[in-house]
Design a protein around this nucleic acid. Structure first.
Lengths: 339, 339
DNA sequence: TTGAAAGCGCTAACAG
DNA sequence: CTGTTAGCGCTTTCAA
């Protein structure tokens, strides 16, 4: 036997108490400006007295919109949930939406049953969705874009579809900035720890690194691949060191990886930045707490999340919005890039 | 003009196509066992062909349950969102719920308007809620417990109300385990960096530390207070060092704080563990990536989140569940506690 | 085992 | 400016 749920007062009750029709109460609740001021007051009083709260389901059903937005996280990404970057994006989105009438539903896209997610999304259960994908094979979502306002966090790999809305940072430029800062200290043998090769952000960052290296007139540096986690940074660095290539500077595509790499560097008896200069991306607790603290390019993940939410809401409301929003990044010089 | 939303097929359409009544389709959708097998097949065929997905709002309205569960995060806690512990709890809850018919709504409890949250919760918008609170003044939620199945993550400070359901770890025991491990290496001057004094977990951990110290026959150690973040660990450690008290071992109430503290220790020219042994709680990337790696007591945050979700669901379904579930913890010996 | 019919609580024309 | 009247898409007695 299910627990009893206290009966909520209905719109009708409010109407009776205020001596008006349900329609009028509805108007007041929805902030219509065509209700006489004293009536508004009377209704509001009744609402307060009864502690009335409109029923979401009924409202959704009647107006054909759910007032809820999904935040979709592929399961594989969920494993990276501990990544402060994602956490911040989510937080930003949730915070923004808390100022609107929308609710945020966290949706984990199970890899075992991808249809489940798209069914849910397509099923009219939400008015829009934010797609946070770490990996690339999100073509399934691109299809959905036709039937539901979607906003991607970070450029999806498959861009074929027309109306894909994206909130991104200029990863290539960010990587270039970081690499340049570190190269400016006179380093001649840069290397990089890149991210998953099926991820837009990773590829762009690697490209930015390569560009900066080339612009500095240096030969292409060695590349090792990680997956943005500290552990992967460690193994990538080990790989780099083992390769025997001469390395005097490292651009890691994420602070977490830089962090992991530093352990290996220290274990090898090398010093940062004197032996190896480091620059990276993300100003998270890893970047701030490493020693020396990491020279990095900060992207404001929280704002990015908020922006994503803002965009879906605007699209849901039929406002026209730019397809691609590039969030600013900022170079933060700390100790790790040398002098 | 809002963007057009593709019209979803309705139950009625399915009924027509399958040549049955809407009631029957509804039965099939809800897995009733009183429908003839061939009818079931016919209906399922129609559903598949039409790509039918039941409308959540209508269903909620009709059955008086929303199939959604709120995850409430006080705004102050949201600031700690980057705490891997919280991220994991959320992930665990989301993952678990993804295997059920329930949806997870992320709710940030604005401090500026606390009534908003409880209105939402009380308003019949969700069937239950998970309360993740970092701070203590959550008496407001305890009130709600009367009208909605609530499950707390971590013991709330105000426990007056009867039916508060909690999924927690034995913080005192965990702290004791950690402290004992570190004391066992012969340390005589332990200190601790504690957490916010209005948080159950922090208080319990401090108590566990003190107990272990006392059991070891040592005089009470010095205490500094942090807020679980790396930064606060730094300042707390600075404070401890500045106090002039002799310290040869440190129990930090969170790995993040231990991590921050280690920077200060290193800056002071001291070595871990030879000069100062360290033990802590949480096996997150901070604990694993510190050098030396931290001896710590692991609590499985993901499982805790899943358990919380499981409990609300059971309560919603009227099953009886224990009021207090204590999740196991595990001591992990690594380098930082000495030898 | 199935269908008919009456709502769930709210919004949205349409009159007035 | 306000009330009347239909539904929104589904579930759920109640009969058959």
């Amino acid at each position: 036997m299910p627990e009893p749920r206290k009966q909520q007062p209905t719109l009708e009750l409010v109407a009776e108490r205020a001596g008006v029709s349900r329609a009028t109460v509805s108007r007041v609740v929805n902030g219509s400006d065509k209700v006489k001021a004293d009536v508004v007051r009377a209704v509001e009083k009744a609402i307060a007295e009864l502690n009335y709260v409109p029923n979401r389901a009924a409202r959704s059903l009647a107006q054909g919109r759910t007032n809820s937005i999904a935040l979709v996280i592929p399961e594989s990404t969920a494993k990276f949930f501990a990544d402060p970057y994602f956490a911040s994006v989510i937080q930003g989105a949730a915070m923004y939406l808390s100022t609107t009438e929308f609710t945020l539903s966290l949706l984990i896209a199970t890899e075992s049953d991808p249809a489940k997610t798209s069914r849910y999304l397509r099923g009219g259960n939400v008015d829009g969705a934010l797609i946070l994908s770490h990996h690339a094979d999100d073509s399934s979502y691109s299809e959905l874009a036709g039937s539901l306002p979607l906003v991607f966090g970070g450029r999806p790999m498959s861009n074929e579809n027309g109306n894909v809305f994206v909130v991104d940072v200029d990863n290539a430029a960010a990587a270039r900035k970081a690499t340049e800062a570190m190269l400016k200290t006179g380093r001649k043998h840069p290397a990089t720890i890149s991210g998953p090769q099926n991820m837009g952000a990773a590829i762009d960052r690697q490209r930015g690194f390569e560009q900066a290296v080339q612009d500095a007139g240096l030969p292409a540096g060695s590349v090792a691949v990680g997956d943005f986690t500290p552990d992967s940074g460690e193994s990538a660095m080990r790989e780099l060191l083992a390769s025997g290539a001469k390395i005097d500077s490292l651009f890691a595509a994420s602070a977490q990886m830089a962090f992991g790499a530093m352990k290996v560097i220290a274990d090898a008896g090398l010093m940062v930045p004197s032996d190896i200069a480091i620059a990276t991306i993300d100003d998270d607790s890893f970047a701030r707490n490493a020693s020396p603290a990491l020279t990095t390019v900060a992207q404001n993940a929280e704002e990015q999340g908020a922006k994503m939410a803002e965009i879906v809401v605007q699209r849901i409301n039929g406002e026209s919005v730019p397809e691609r929003i590039i969030m600013p990044t900022k170079l933060i010089l700390r100790g790790s890039h040398g002098v």
